[in-house]
Amino acid sequence: MQSKQAPDTEILVIGGGPAGLHAAFYAAWRGLSVRVLEARGEVGGQLLALYPDKVIYDVPGVPQVRAAELVAALCAQLGPLDVDLRTGEVARTLEPDGTGGWVIGTAGARHRARAVILAAGMGALLPREVRVPGADTHPDVRADLPDPAGFAGRRVLVVGGVPQATRAAVELLEAGATVTLTHRRAGFRGDPLTLARLETARQASQMRLLAPAVLSRLTPQGAELVVEGAPLAVRADTVLILNGYLPDLSPLQAWPLAWDGEYVPDGPSGQTVLPGVYVIGDLARSGGDFKLLSLAFAQAAVAANHAAHHVRPELKVRPGHSSERGGYPAR
């Protein structure tokens, strides 16, 4: 498939985790056009993929906040700004555009930008491969969160104990699907609101919950489970098996960034060895083992403001105080 040429943007952020979202905010706050490429089907990075239900205590100025709530707040902060969030796109190639900028290639598109901010963390978080007997016999087996809107009227079997499984089951039910949720243990994980919605659905007999249960194999018609020692056939048009995510840095490691193991060396501004390419967060060598949100946010602000000056030299590196601007810049 030939890649499409996406509209140009001034700054391209690779990675939609907290560092990438904050970098996007600062660059767009300076009045630049920003695009974010996120490998998963939703932004949030490790916060949503690995522990959306966990409480975080070290966000500056916030005594405690659930990971999913922090992501929602970061996204809300981008709302009034010129930020183009693109999910399901894994950055794979990096080429100079001949004018001092860069072209980043994904499986389906080419993105040209004047500056690039790498916020890929541990790498693209890709869903674990489905390894269940009979998986190749069922017509629709998925390993990542789908868009619930397209599942009205379908029978969906959701398998997994991760928070994404609980959320998917609730959202699919509310979108009009007939949902069965199962897990090999008795309990399900999720934020309090999602768990409350699940309990309401259970009490109203709107959703079938089978836990603890063991998924034996998939069939063309659905799946075979073992519940309380007895076999049980479940019919399903779609089987959604959510077993978490694994990081993959390989698409980026071919880029000429003077890699130091799994880190990209950087200077005080986040500048890499490539002009106009910056790195922040867990991927930056300067952070070392300090994989902290507070550090990632600081790196994001510094790199974004240097990138803004790189793209538009008339802009000072120092952004000034937000309280003195009098509001968001006009889009």
Rank of each mutant, 00 (worst) to 15 (best):
R285T: 00
G267N: 12
E199C: 01
R167H: 09
A186R: 15
D97K: 11
L32C: 08
R185P: 06
D84Q: 14
A213G: 08
A39T: 08
A68H: 12
Q164F: 00
A230T: 15
T182Q: 01
W29I: 07
A28L: 02
G276E: 08
L32R: 14
Q206W: 06
R30D: 04
R114A: 13
R114H: 11
L173V: 00
L315N: 07
T238G: 09
E228N: 15
G98H: 10
A213I: 03
L225P: 07
S3R: 15
G61M: 05
V103Q: 13
I241C: 05
L145P: 00
L70I: 00
L295H: 10
V141L: 10
G161C: 04
R114Q: 14
G88F: 13
L283C: 12
A91W: 03
V132E: 04
L37Y: 09
L173G: 12
A120K: 02
L242F: 06
I56N: 13
F151D: 10
V90E: 08
V239Q: 04
D58K: 09
P251E: 04
R235D: 14
W29K: 07
G41Q: 14
L32Y: 03
E10Q: 15
P60D: 01
L48H: 07
L274V: 07
V130Y: 01
F290E: 10
G15E: 09
Y51E: 05
R40I: 00
S250D: 07
K54V: 13
G41A: 06
D53P: 01
G288A: 08
A168H: 07
R184F: 06
A223G: 02
E224D: 05
G150V: 05
L210W: 09
A307L: 04
A124D: 12
